[in-house]
Design a protein around this nucleic acid. Structure first.
Lengths: 339, 339
DNA sequence: CTGAAAGCGCTTACAG
DNA sequence: CTGAAAGCGCTTACAG
């Protein structure tokens, strides 16, 4: 009658809940999972019994029996960029209250590491995966395909069929920055970028396309390095650019931290911002509203991306109709003192 | 003979590995878990079979059978402070290669939210928990106690028995800052703090104790607000302090971001740092080495805390003897231009 | 050192 | 709308 005490966890089980509620175990299971076919009277009996016992479902047993966990994986390229922290928080705020566990994987901007994470995490039988962008290995794509896990892509947009994505046009954002600097009367415009992931490249393309259209594109006015973006690197790259092209009069940095470093370096060299050189950053990190001079930047909708991506995932998990496979959340140019 | 195809995951199972290796399932299980009693010849046979099949253990089944997962929970008060990101990275780098899953819980500096996280995460039957500090609800303590999960505490030190902790003395760090400012000839010294978690209070205690010992403590020279620490708040609090006490000549900020904001505000007001007022921050965030003037700060050993805490957890999980229940990793005063 | 049996706590699939 | 049986894929506890 009693189970082997040496094996049990000691926690109340569904069988005990069912016994107290006077129903079968499977009915208790259905009641607690809100399966709609259960008699409302029984549902409340089961809920009471569960509450009285302090019953908490065992996720391992549930996952084993159903071959699917209640975990959603989120794969981001970095945690060192505040951007992704805010996205993750937004995802958590939507999925946790609905009973989903959110597992974070940081792939450090490495396709190989992302593939390894996907391989590992699939063993946990996640019910869904949130991915950053579209640039991944063939093997990653195969793994995702073969496991038939619902995927939502964040940060970038695509026109591809059967792909769910929530983001904004990185390329358009770059173009908006270019037009802003041109409107300020600047003509010797440079792109300074690090990390060089797909989105950084797209921003640069948009920026240069707009410059070309205005007839002021000088391909030499560009510094792109694969190292991680940082404040220190921003100062360094700014110094290098200035030595090579002393006539530069406007710079678009692929991320705010580079611009912050450049502002400090300009201050040390006594270079007037924005009068001699105007600066524009990207992402609008918290510091940008306070630095001297305050930094003009593109405000990216990262919280909205997280929220919408999570809601889209909920829709997919519910098996409901998805109104839009592509959600464009747009960005905003925040003009401050630096340009 | 074949299992019900509608239930199975389609992935290879331990039973198949065992069949191919020509051993029993339990021997295959032991071989793959490095149980030392298995014949080395059989171990290699099992490993080969597993590799050939592309076998990946099912964590849900393992957890259900053993009543213990391979997951280590890490509870941190915030992700918005770069400090904890670096600690988490260090923990990951130690535990992931050993096959442990690291689950991150952010309790947003709320004891109640931490309690809720503990309650939820215990359902996952973690094999260990890494906690931040010692300030938690009675219910949290009971839950941890009752579940007999190994715990390691990070960031603070205690002399309590049977408690494992890895950190440094927050109070001593505060005292070191005070002595540094005194050595610079400053006498009207203030503590500016936000968030007000236990560690922030400890730093303040150490700072004020040292000032009292030097006979220069003015209790009025202090601003402590419970809001979240941020760059913007730092500028605001600095402005407020200056209006109330125009003669202040040195400020210790409980976190670097406050000091950054104060530096910007001082720049706007034309106040000379460090000549009129010296600034010292805490944590030595990346920006502090670049801001103008470069910020003097306490470099906290957060990566080391993460690494040591993770290794301590591995020791506990292995059931091995722990040499030191308390690991003091110390801090370093990094003197730069701001003081 | 190896194994057959039982069990972990759920949900699926099928019946009624 | 409800339920008895079987099964998910492992490990534990016991034997030998």
């Amino acid at each position: 009658m009693r189970k082997d005490p040496s094996r049990a966890t000691g926690r109340p089980t569904l069988a005990e809940v069912a016994r107290i509620a006077g129903v079968s175990q499977i009915t208790a299971s259905r009641a607690l999972r809100d399966v709609p076919t259960v008699d409302p009277g029984l549902v409340s009996k089961v809920r009471e019994a569960a509450k009285a016992l302090g019953y908490v479902p065992n996720p391992a047993a549930r996952t084993l029996a159903s071959a699917r966990s209640q975990s959603v994986i989120v794969l981001v390229p970095a945690l060192s960029n505040q951007l992704y922290i805010e996205t993750l928080e937004a995802i958590h705020s939507v999925l946790r209250p609905r009973g989903y566990e959110v597992l974070i994987g940081n792939f450090h901007y490495s396709r190989e590491e992302e593939e390894e994470l996907i391989r590992n995490y699939l063993a946990f039988q996640p019910c869904g995966i949130l991915l950053t962008g579209f640039d991944r290995t063939e093997a990653s794509l195969h793994l995702l395909e073969a496991n038939k896990v619902p995927c939502v892509h964040m940060m970038e947009l695509t026109q591809a069929e059967d792909v769910f994505c929530v983001g904004f046009s990185q390329e358009d954002a770059g173009a908006v920055v270019a037009r802003h600097l041109l409107a300020r009367g600047k003509r010797r415009l440079a792109y300074v970028a690090a990390q060089l992931d797909a989105r950084v490249l797209q921003r640069g393309e948009g920026f240069k396309r707009a410059l070309a259209e205005a007839g002021v594109l000088d391909p030499a006015l560009e510094i792109m390095v694969p190292e991680a973006s940082s404040v220190g690197l921003g100062g360094e790259l700014f110094g290098r650019l200035l030595r090579q092209h002393p006539d530069v009069d406007g710079i678009f940095f692929c991320n705010d931290d580079l611009a912050h470093g450049a502002i400090f370096e300009a201050q040390r060299q006594g270079i007037a911002v924005p009068d001699r050189i105007a600066f524009v950053g990207f992402n609008d990190l918290p510091m940008s509203a306070h630095i001297v001079p305050r930094l003009t930047s593109i405000r990216t909708p990262r919280e909205a991306v997280g929220k919408h991506a999570a809601h889209l995932m909920l829709t997919l998990l519910a098996g409901a109709e998805v109104p839009d496979r592509t959600v464009d959340l747009e960005f905003e140019l925040v003009v401050r003192e630096s340009s």
